[in-house]
């Protein structure tokens, strides 16, 4: 665990939450990317020794507070998400950008689907089509966030 990547990672998470909270016009609000998910993915992918499963608890709880979901919902989805990223990150390193985007799409969709299932078990979730918008937009922000964090000193296996 390196202090430097921890600080950069937390800063990135902070901005992830800022963007997550950013008020969006109704029209494109449906497409608001899962910023925190993307950042968490990237952190776990780029600095797996610093950011691991533990990140699921604070990030998940804050996401629950942010989205006013039942406490633990996002912890659950985040834990599974981080586990899958850790499972894939070796392969993701040799993937090109489009393959990475494909992985992010699958992961984001799974995250959304889990959220949807959990919400449906516990409440009435609006509409299943809501799953797709954020997942798709998350895929398209992935390369940018990836490139941005690559500019920092955050490097693989720190």
């Amino acid at each position: 665990m390196s202090i430097q990547s921890l600080i950069i990672g937390l800063l990135a998470l902070f901005f992830g939450f800022v963007l997550e909270h950013l008020p969006m016009p109704d029209l494109i609000g449906w497409f608001q990317p899962l910023w925190v998910l993307v950042v968490v993915t990237l952190l776990v992918f780029q600095a797996p020794r610093t950011f691991g499963l533990w990140l699921a608890v604070p990030a998940g709880l804050m996401l629950d507070a942010e989205h006013a979901t039942l406490m633990g919902t996002h912890v659950f989805t985040m834990a599974i998400h981080i586990f899958l990223v850790q499972l894939f990150f070796r392969r993701m390193e040799v993937f090109n950008l489009f393959q990475q985007m494909g992985v992010v799409l699958v992961l984001a969709l799974l995250h959304q689907l889990l959220r949807f299932w959990l919400a449906q078990v516990l409440f009435d979730y609006p509409h299943p089509i809501d799953i797709w918008g954020p997942a798709l937009s998350s895929v398209f922000v992935w390369p940018w966030v990836f490139a941005l964090l690559r500019l920092t000193v955050l490097r693989t296996h720190t």
């Binding site: 699921a56 709880l61 039942l70 406490m71 633990g72 919902t73 912890v75 659950f76 834990a79």
Partner: peptide, 28 residues
């Protein structure tokens, strides 16, 4: 991961039934 997921499920159950989890929400 399974453990964390189980904890999360327990937390969800607790949040639905006990108001004590609200303090956690406030903290977050």
């Amino acid at each position: 991961t399974l453990l964390v997921c189980l904890l999360a499920l327990a937390l969800m159950w607790a949040d639905q039934n006990y108001s004590i989890v609200q303090t956690l929400r406030f903290a977050a």
